[in-house]
Nucleic acid binder design. Structure first.
Lengths: 333, 333
DNA sequence: CTGTTAGCGCTTTCAG
DNA sequence: CTGAAAGCGCTAACAG
């Protein structure tokens, strides 16, 4: 049962008194010197009058295209990916494309239907925060990788995480910190490797700088334990650099359990600047990563790729946002 | 340029030595006594061998269907809707359906393409946390409403928010609280109206129960101010009931600014149980709303509706989760 | 400058 | 029990 039967291009042709192909040319925007301006206007008016919208299924069949792209993300429960989707979907919609999200690796089993999972019918892939082997099994499908290793085969849109980390260390060093602790996400993603390397390099470049590292899952409880391990060391760090805002929340808990004041006794920083950052007390000094723009730029690049272009690598700078969780280290008498 | 040219049903027919229509019947599962079991098996094997997947565009064109449903949400930046999408998409994928998200009302302008926005080509709508008039302009399209007023025309899947609120008040009353403050979301949504009514009723039913109310945007700073207003009253509340976990984070800030200990001087509760609830210190007593299941049940209902059925109203219970943010009120001497 | 025509891959009568 | 044929709405050759 078709939904509400909508006008077809034949109806428009009839209304305008022309042939179907003329309608197609005009509405497809390819009438440069092939259709008279007067006719074109007539067609457009007829289409308008009838409220004509082309049938996507028919276009897709004819063009061998689906006007659908897949956004691959590692999870949707993390607050970071909602905005990425929003940005991607916004740009896609502007070009008549839909976006389906695919969580990978997937916890759920395979589809229990005789028909294909939706990712069997896509024109392109936007893969966020993935290793390159995520695209295995999709060989031949145009893809753009987001927040991923730019050394891979696909074009990328990334954040300037290394610069962000350097800014963070410069900020803390300027306050007088020298002993740093890294509450590191134990997740094998490019972005976290870069964060770790940039942090290590920046601290090493600092006269008298020392860095200890403790790993945890991206989850508050695990982060609290990792932070506690760092703080239990002899000569504990005066600043905890966390790979993610949520980890910083765990660090706050560890500090509070030890009776340490943030930022009086301990400075804490996050990364990403999600909603949580301002929900915490004190508000979190962090590096803002423009997630929605990542999605938007990624989709722009993918559409360019689908159009036969070769998008250039794009780096979106992260911006240091100083709030109340960082301050000068307490002088130990 | 079609992506990788895939085998068609004609290829399968040839491989199996039968006609295209036979393939269609077998693979469509409608061969009950119309095709011999032997032939059917042959067709299936041929399809398997070739790795055949039916072309959705052709199916859609023929059937006048799109196998796409639209999920309408008020925003994607709130952490609540990611899981809703996940649940909906999981069920949809199991039936060969894709899900496109549509944020409404939309901040962005109209599409800048001559072609339809994707929501022009959908089989059904799943509208979450919306007023019924969100479906205006989609008259005729089957729809299921999520977390919305069940009095509307469409089938609904909702949370038992009223029961959850009653449990919360019972918990607080059991601890000894009588003076309540409601940090209320100033958002015109069914769920918040129900929360407010249930809270008011539960407090009114309590001997000596009093309730003050203060509204705010769903945002930590605004919530902090609303909570501060409540706490500045003569005879301030001993428990702050917040419409949302994020609002509770704001309440924490207000308490801390006044030097009040949570839960020693002030009990605070949230609603939803998002990630934030355990990131706060102390961890938040709240009502868990199974967001992913909301999406899954909603999609199940919508598919039933699309199949000609009439899904029954479904209520998913919320569960009180007691953590560290609630305790007995301090006795004022 | 405009119309005619073929066909994308599939489902579904209708004959055999 | 199986095959032949039509047509969903659209686009792109190719004629005129």
């Amino acid at each position: 049962m078709p939904a509400t039967s909508r006008p077809t291009s034949r109806d428009v042709a009839q209304e305008a008194g022309v042939s179907q192909s003329t309608v197609s040319l005009v509405l497809g925007g390819k009438w440069a010197g092939r259709v008279s301006p007067a006719t074109a206007r007539g067609v457009r008016e007829a289409a308008e009058r009838l409220g004509y919208r082309p049938n996507q299924a028919a276009r897709n069949l004819r063009l061998g295209t689906t006007r659908t792209v897949m956004l691959m993300v590692p999870t949707l429960t993390a607050p970071f990916f909602g905005p990425v989707y929003t940005g991607a979907a916004r740009v896609a919609a502007g070009h008549g494309f839909g976006v389906v999200v695919h969580v990978w690796p997937d916890d759920a089993g395979p589809a229990d239907s005789p028909f294909a999972a939706p990712h069997e019918a896509i024109d392109g892939i936007l893969a966020s925060s993935m290793a390159v082997d995520a695209l295995a099994g999709f060989r031949g499908t145009p893809a753009v990788m987001l927040d991923s290793d730019p050394a891979g085969p696909a074009p990328t849109v990334e954040f300037g995480v290394a610069d962000g980390m350097r800014d963070l260390v410069a900020h803390l060093a300027g306050l007088g910190h020298r002993r740093f602790g890294h509450v590191a996400a134990a997740v094998d993603q490019w972005t976290f490797r870069v964060r770790a390397e940039a942090l290590a390099a920046a601290v090493a470049a600092l006269p008298g700088g020392v860095l200890a590292r403790s790993e945890c899952a991206i989850e508050a409880t695990s982060a609290r334990e990792a932070a506690a391990r760092l703080l239990a060391r002899p000569d504990p760090p005066t600043a905890l650099v966390c790979d993610d805002d949520l980890l910083a929340a765990g660090a706050y808990k560890a500090a509070r359990a030890l009776g340490l004041d943030v930022p009086g006794d301990l400075s804490v920083t996050g990364f990403d600047d999600v909603l949580l950052a301002t929900a915490l007390e004190p508000e979190l000094t962090t590096v803002r990563l423009p997630a929605e723009e990542l999605g938007a730029r990624g989709m722009t690049a993918l559409l360019e790729l689908l159009g036969g272009g070769r998008p250039r690598r794009c780096v979106l700078p992260g911006r240091l946002v100083v709030r109340g969780s960082t301050g000068p280290p307490r002088i130990v008498l």
